[in-house]
Design a protein around this nucleic acid. Structure first.
Lengths: 230, 230
DNA sequence: CCACCCAATTGATATATGTCAAGCGTGGAT
DNA sequence: ATCCACGCTTGACATATATCAATTGGGTGG
C-alpha cells in the first residue's frame, strides 16, 4: 500500500474520520490492481471477500435472473462499491464487470468489519454512506416502477445536461446498449425512444445529444427531486 | 413513554445494544399513537421529523410520479421504517399510509441522530440495519427489472407458501389490489396472471390460493436466493 | 486504403401490460 | 332479509415493449 493510494482512500468521505492507525490496519493486505475492459470482477452469489474502491475507469454492477440480465448501476471513480455486502459478511448481491480499463483497490472485507467495530468515526460515516446508497436504490426503484421507458430516457437526458453544465448539448458517457440496459430496455427500444423524443426537440448524432426545447422535454419527463440524482 | 413501550423498542435488534440512559433519552418526546385504516402518515417530500416504529397493524410505503402511484413495500409489526431518512435529516423518500388500524411509536428524528453519535452500540446496529434494508431494496429492484408480472406473482406465492408453513395452501395477507400494486401491475392484470398460473396448478378461491403442482410452479418462477426474501 | 467487425438503426411482428367498460359476488349497513 | 358499495373478474381494445431479421455506418486493424 503506497502513500498515494492511502491518500485516495482518505479523500473519500467514508474514510475521512477514521483514525490513522485503524486506516493503516485496514489497508494491510489491500492491493491496487488494474483490470482490462470487459472483465468480470465477481458474480452475485460469490462470497464478499473484498470491499472495492474504483480508483480509475468505470464499472458496471449488473444482475441476472430468469435468463435475463440488466444493469443495476454504474460506478465512477473515485467511489467504493459493495460496502453493504462487505459489512454483513454475505454474498455480493450484484455482479460486476469493468466497462473500460480500470484501477481498483481491493480491501479485505474482514479488515473493513474490524475497522467498523473499532473505529467510532468510521461507523458514523458508514451509517451515512449506507443511508445514501439506500436512497439511491429507492430512487432507481421508483424510476423503473413509475415511469415509462421514454420518460426514463427523457429524465436521464435532463440529469446529464445538468451534470455537463446545462449547455443544451450532452455527450453520452457510455455506449447506447449499456444505457439501454441501465434504463431497463432493449437497445432497439432505446433507438425508438430517441425517435419518440424528436418532436420534443431531441436531436441525436452518435453519442452527442442536442436539447432544442428544454421546456417541452421537461413537460414530458416531469423530473422529480425525489427520483433523479442531483 | 410507558415501560411496555420501552420494552417493545428494546426487543428490536436495532436498539438491543443501546445503553439504558441513551435509550431513555431517545424516547423522550416519543409517543405511541393509534391510527385508523387508510390514514396517510406522511408524504414523500415532507421533512423527516420522526423515526416510526410499527407496533401493531400494517403500513404501506408507496410513491407517486408522473400521475402514477405504486406500492414500494409493506411494513409488518414490529419494525421500524424511514430510518435512513431520519438519520440523514432529509425528506421521507416514500409516502406512508395505514392499511388497517395501526399503533405506531413515533420517535423524534433529532433524538435518533443524537443517539447515533453518542452510542457506539447503536451505531453498529444501525449499520447492520441499513445494510439489510439496502439489500431488501436491491432485491425488489432486481425482481421488477428482471422478471415478468407472472413470474413475480409465482415467486410471491412460493415465498408466502414457505412463510405460512409449506402447506400448499396460502391465504393472501393483503387485498388483491394492494398485492397487484406491490407486484407492479394493475388489479386486472393480477387476475389474468392468476389465470395464467392455472395450468401450473394454481387454484384461486377468494384470498385462498392452492398450489397443486409445486414443481411446475418453481420451474416457471425460477426462485432465487438473491431476489426472494427468506 | 480497404475490409471487417460490431454497435446502432429500422422494419415487421409478437408478447406483455394497461385502459376502459361492463358484470359478478360478497359482506356490511339499514 | 334486502340493498348497496366495492373489490374483483372478464372482455375488448390500446399501448408499451420485446423479438427477430435485415441493413447501415463508423472505427480499427491489417
Amino acid at each position: 500500500m503506497r502513500t498515494s493510494e492511502k491518500e485516495i482512500v482518505r479523500s473519500l468521505p467514508l474514510f475521512s474520520e477514521m483514525a490513522e492507525d485503524h486506516l493503516d490496519e485496514m489497508l494491510t493486505g489491500s492491493f491496487l490492481q488494474r483490470f482490462p475492459a470487459t472483465v468480470v470482477l465477481f458474480s452475485e452469489s460469490d462470497h464478499t471477500d473484498f470491499l472495492h474502491v474504483l480508483v480509475d475507469g468505470q464499472v458496471e454492477l449488473y444482475a441476472s435472473a430468469n435468463n435475463r440480465e440488466g444493469t443495476m448501476t454504474l460506478i465512477k471513480p473515485v467511489a467504493t462499491f459493495v460496502l453493504a455486502s462487505a459489512l454483513t459478511d454475505s454474498a455480493y448481491q450484484l455482479s460486476a464487470r469493468t466497462l473500460e480499463s480500470s484501477q481498483i483497490l481491493m480491501i479485505p472485507a474482514q479488515n473493513v468489519r474490524t475497522a467498523m467495530s473499532n473505529d467510532q468515526g468510521f461507523a458514523q460515516k458508514a451509517v451515512r454512506e449506507l443511508a445514501l446508497c439506500y436512497h439511491g436504490v429507492v430512487r432507481a426503484y421508483k424510476n423503473i416502477k413509475l415511469r415509462t421507458a421514454v420518460e426514463r430516457l427523457a429524465n436521464y437526458i435532463i440529469v446529464q445536461n445538468r451534470r455537463q453544465g446545462e449547455t443544451g448539448v450532452i455527450k453520452l458517457p457510455i455506449e447506447k446498449r449499456t444505457l439501454a440496459s441501465m434504463l431497463g430496455m432493449t437497445p432497439e427500444n432505446l433507438s425508438r425512444a430517441f425517435a419518440t423524443l424528436k418532436p420534443y426537440g431531441i436531436r441525436v448524432d452518435g453519442a452527442e445529444i442536442c436539447i432544442e426545447k428544454p421546456g417541452d422535454l421537461e413537460t414530458l419527463a416531469k423530473p422529480s427531486e425525489l427520483i433523479d440524482a442531483h
